[in-house]
Design a protein around this nucleic acid. Structure first.
Lengths: 363, 363
DNA sequence: GGTATCTAGACAAACTATTGTCTAGATGGG
DNA sequence: CCCATCTAGACAATAGTTTGTCTAGATACC
């Protein structure tokens, strides 16, 4: 199409404004002004057209580096996450990524594996790389950071940090009332790992709702997760061990779906039928939950939506707006009933049909 | 500790070389030279110490932007991936991320959802952002790119691109010989989605090995996956539909573990017992495979290792080295036998014990 | 015709860090 | 004492872009 032979090959790397300027016999300024459509500059349409044509022809792409340096805008945010390969985190990241790319932002991801030194180091690295804001997923930030931060599943209140959290009290209501209504009175519980940022809030929710319902949480039937695993192995040995000592419970409230899958396997391997003998409730509703055998009754977190929400909250702070970021935004959980829960065995049917106490915040 | 009152608060954002220079009454050059330990410059140790102290005190972090602009090194690579929330991709990304952070590189991730416009657009965006190299996971690149690329599960040979692939012939041998030895002769197969870059190679492996073993691949028992899903839903309806018409097969070779999980669920819902009635072999060995009920017999891909390998190959190209990048590097699959496979029902036992034909490349 | 206004751009500075070159003063040798 | 060398840094240029200011020439007005 072009008139020159060397049209296709500009093998000397990407063209700069300067190159283009030399070619057009214009000042780089003029070109920048035209391509960015800066208002209030008088450049005749003929020249504008000439510039646009040349830019297209040479496939001119402004250097993000130079532009960012000059404008102090990088259109980049940093994401802090414990691990990449995990249903929960991946789903949240997808929400974040979808929304971010939509808004012409890019992101750096750093995964810290719960190592405190990395949790401290990575934010600094992300910042020095030009991140304008940070989204921390399931990560307990220690220091106050000099830029806007949104923490998903963050519970510590810090100035400049917006926490996106699930309503854990409501979540506990949903799972415990479901079990209560099915007649379960002796229930085993799982507490999340100490470093998992939802662990405490989720446990508090359970403790409160259990009390409201008159359910007793027995310490010997409470499993404290410790291992840093994203596979069902997380829940397998601990439930196996629990079963070695106690068999009187009729239901297990698992910390998350992954652990619930391991739990189900452990029950199965111990000769117990899930749902018939022991009901299992998960948490998160990861993709796999619906296709387990038996499929998992669980508390759904709107993970994708939480990711999107985090982006929205962060960008809102990045834009020169008057609205201050709220310290916390809560999203609602949802009970998904599937096959892993059923009526409690052994205990009298009467209990089942008895009206349950009304929790403080009604169902 | 410090002598000044304003020690802790340098609220005016990160300090630049210039600020530091003003504070020290030195030229920025001198500071840069000292902090980077540029050889061949005569700066007395006393001054050097003074500079290092001040840098520490003000927590000076060189601007990556400015540095990258000047040095034409960004220490950043771009990752192209179809989706974030998927066991296979996440595991590979973890391998990549681990290795990259170890090497002081950061990465941009862009997920394209198999949309061809994005597959074309994202590489450009990543490049203009300063990515020095690209790793494409399960992504069919169309154009030749002006920078080093490593494609994981890439099969098209392109100059400048190194493909990291699984030995799919070997993989087919492992799964088919396993089934053959268990007496399976009538087997249903699943072909991956056309856009999944491993689909063809994996299918070719199966076709060849089946032929060597004298197994017939019946078109009516071949499922062609179409849907773009990362959940077991991928394998559920298609197997359900297959079962509506044919029930004579004794085994299913699934395209991947996720589809296998859906397949198992479909068999279960159709009243068939997995392993006893129908054996199922998966592919990938994602984290969940071991904890399904029944646990999944599958072909393990060394996903984490493939990610690490990709980084290694890419960085090798980035470093000014003499070694040219190979066009392809193959990694070995591994058969993991679990509960989802068992001896074939109905057909004569005799077949089972009969010696199977030796495939071209021996087991 | 002379002054005011407008047009079409050029010019310089800034963002931050790095590299190559240069100089003022100090030291050393003969 | 004078020239050569060395020391300790400064200075300028560069990377690629954007923004604010300025000017030469053209046009308009009275």
């Amino acid at each position: 199409m072009g008139k020159r032979k060397s049209d296709d090959k500009h093998s000397d790397g990407p063209v700069s404004l300067k190159t283009l300027a030399a070619y057009l016999n214009l000042d780089p300024t003029t070109i920048s002004v035209v391509l960015n459509e800066v208002p209030g500059r008088s450049i005749p349409e003929a020249t504008r057209e000439r510039i646009r044509k040349a830019a297209l022809k040479f496939n001119y792409q402004p250097s993000f580096l130079a532009r960012s340096l000059r404008n102090r805008r990088t259109m980049t945010i940093g994401i802090l996450v414990p691990v990449l390969a995990d249903g929960y985190h991946a789903e949240v990241m997808t929400g974040i990524g979808d929304r971010l790319l939509e808004e012409n932002y890019f992101y750096f991801i750093a995964h810290h594996r719960h190592r405190t030194d990395l949790i401290e180091q990575y934010p600094r690295m992300l910042i020095s790389r030009g991140a304008e804001g940070l989204i921390a997923i399931d990560t307990n930030l220690v220091h106050r950071l000099p830029l806007p931060v949104v923490a998903i599943a963050g519970h510590r209140r810090m100035s400049g940090v917006t926490n996106v959290v699930l309503d854990h009290h409501r979540a506990a209501e949903l799972s415990l009332c479901h079990l209560y209504d099915l007649g379960h009175r002796t229930i085993a519980f799982m507490r999340g790992q100490p470093y998992s940022s939802d662990s405490d809030a989720r446990w508090q929710g359970i403790v409160q709702v259990a009390q409201d319902l008159g359910l007793v949480i027995k310490p010997e039937m409470t499993i404290q997760l410790e291992k840093d695993l994203t596979s069902p192995e997380l829940g397998y040995p601990v439930v196996k061990q629990l079963l070695a000592h106690h068999r009187s419970f009729t239901a297990v409230v698992s910390f998350n779906d992954v652990a619930a899958i391991g739990c189900i396997r452990a029950l199965h391997d111990s000769g117990l039928r899930v749902a018939e003998d022991v009901s299992v409730v998960g948490f998160d509703d990861i993709k796999e939950a619906a296709f387990q055998t038996p499929s998992l009754t669980t508390i759904r977190q709107p993970l994708h939506q939480m990711g999107e929400l985090a982006v929205q909250l962060l960008l809102q702070q990045l834009r020169p707006s008057d609205a201050k970021a709220p310290p916390q935004v809560a999203v609602a959980p949802e009970l998904i009933v599937r096959e892993s829960t059923g009526p409690a065995r052994q205990r009298s049917r009467k209990t089942t049909s008895s009206r349950r106490p009304v929790p403080q915040r009604s169902l």
